[in-house]
Amino acid sequence: MSAPGGPSPRRPAFAPLAEETRAAMRRLMARYPNPRSALMSMLYLVQAEHGCVSEAGIEEVAGMLDLTKAEVASVATFYTMLKREPLGRYLVSVCTQPPCALAGAGSLRRALEEELGVGFGQTTPDGAITLEEVECVCVCDGAPAVQVNYESYEHLTPEAAVELVRKLRSGGAVPPPVHGSVPVPREAIHRELAGLGGHDPDRGGGES
């Protein structure tokens, strides 16, 4: 990884943030006694717009919060949900901690890697799916658990997992998880993570 602030030849250049995004950031800053508390939310908004926490986004956020770029970059590199490389439209996170491992996370991983042709930490060339490993998303009663843009699919078989990513990739409708909603694409989920209002909590949701 390049030093914070240094341009990386591997990273595409990004347009400045949209004015609406900056307005939303100001609203988030006003939510807290100290505007800096909105920093992570603001980085989620950068991610919604640029697909990752871009250098350009870090610079703008630093300017708005009156912080140095290094201070913002140090936060951006600390948290696993803030990514420095562009994410696919859907992030598929496979849990590998013991309860999921006992229930077959290993074969899920192999099936997904084979289907997608990428390994953990990589994105399919069409930009549809990023595959990653996670460490217990606390859905262990649903082991093996896989999250798709942070919606938890439980008790997945390798076949069902492959079917799921095929549908996600082709833009087809996917079934809702038993607890949760149908996953929304990258931009929508990151706006929600930023705290700008989620989609309907019951939309497509399974049981209560």
Partner: peptide, 8 residues
């Protein structure tokens, strides 16, 4: 952060 549904 990963608890999208619970947070919602």
């Amino acid at each position: 952060g990963e608890f999208a549904f619970a947070a919602r």
